[in-house]
Amino acid sequence: MKEYFKEYKPFLLFLAKFLGAYLVLTFAYYSYLSEFDQEKFEVDGFTQIVANQTSQLISVFDSRTHIEPNLTEPSVNLFYREKWVSRIVEGCNSLSVMILFVSFIFSFSGKFKQTVLFILFGCIVIHIFNIIRITLLGVSMFHYPQYQDLLHGVIFPLFIYGVVFILWIIWVNKFSSYAKKSSKRQN
């Protein structure tokens, strides 16, 4: 058994760090969400920020956009050209994607300062691309409502997870402790 742990120590350490970070961040996130009354259809603050920024981005191209609170569920309704095109719920705010991102980066952590800066940079990039994603989805739903399932269920999730995957690749290959060990072996 001791040989097993010795042989797989890097993987087990990665797994322990990932699960630890993921569980702590998920617990913190659900604690944050519990501050909002679902029965009164309260939307959490970050989801409201995402809805506001999405509406602002759309209005750069077409001023006929606005958001309204949903009166039947905790979400924000997005209107484009005065037509309801989508609802922005807690799952749209990308915080759960950021938790996954941060957990992975932490698992392959490098130098402390570099790790923290990359996590901050990555979360900002994810947030910006998420706003772009929701904007494009809303406008697409106006023009192509018949493709709702494909757009919402396949294309746009690939968009945001693709961004996260690229960030992970950059981190692992350029900044993580793994990248430093790998470059030492090649020299």
Rank of each mutant, 00 (worst) to 15 (best):
S182I: 02
V139C: 07
E7L: 14
G153A: 06
Y161L: 13
K174L: 07
E7W: 02
E39A: 13
K6L: 09
Y161E: 03
L19K: 08
A21I: 05
K184E: 10
F101L: 04
Y147H: 09
I169K: 11
F5I: 14
I128V: 15
Y80T: 05
K181G: 11
F14P: 07
M98K: 09
K111S: 11
Q48V: 04
S176C: 00
A16Y: 04
C123F: 03
L150Q: 08
V172R: 03
L78P: 00
S86H: 07
N187F: 11
I134A: 01
Q53S: 01
F11D: 00
F11R: 10
I124E: 06
M1A: 15
E90L: 03
Y161V: 11
F121E: 00
F112K: 15
K6R: 14
L95G: 08
R133W: 07
G162L: 12
L71C: 02
G162C: 03
W168P: 00
F101I: 11
K40T: 13
P145F: 06
V154K: 14
Q186R: 15
L12D: 01
V43M: 05
N130E: 03
V97S: 02
V139A: 11
Q53A: 02
Q38K: 11
Q56K: 14
Q186A: 12
I131V: 15
V102S: 03
F14A: 13
L57Y: 10
F46W: 15
Q53M: 01
N187R: 13
D149E: 04
Q148C: 05
Q56H: 11
K40P: 01
S182T: 06
E42Y: 07
I169Y: 12
V116I: 14
D37L: 09
G110H: 11
Q114N: 06
L19I: 06
Y161Q: 13
I134F: 01
Q48C: 04
F121I: 05
S109R: 15
Y161M: 12
D37M: 10
E42M: 09
A21V: 07
F101W: 06
I131E: 02
W84H: 15
N52F: 02
K17Y: 00
E90Q: 15
L150Y: 06
R133A: 00
N93W: 05
K174Q: 15
L150S: 12
S31I: 01
Q56Y: 10
I49N: 10
E39F: 13
V60A: 08
I160A: 10
A179T: 05
L137V: 00
E3S: 15
K17H: 06
Y30V: 04
F156Y: 08
Q186M: 02
Q114W: 01
N93A: 12
F156N: 04
Y8S: 13
Q146I: 06
Q56C: 01
F129M: 10
F112C: 03
Q146P: 05
I155A: 12
I170M: 04
Y144H: 04
T65S: 15
K6D: 08
V50S: 12
I124T: 15
S31M: 07
I160H: 01
K6I: 14
H127S: 11
I124N: 08
Y161R: 12
N77L: 09
T115F: 02
G153F: 09
S182D: 01
I160Q: 10
S55V: 00
F11Q: 14
K17R: 14
F106R: 07
V125G: 12
L137N: 05
K17I: 09
T72A: 15
F156I: 12
I134D: 01
S96A: 13
I134Y: 05
Y32L: 09
N52V: 06
S59H: 11
P74E: 06
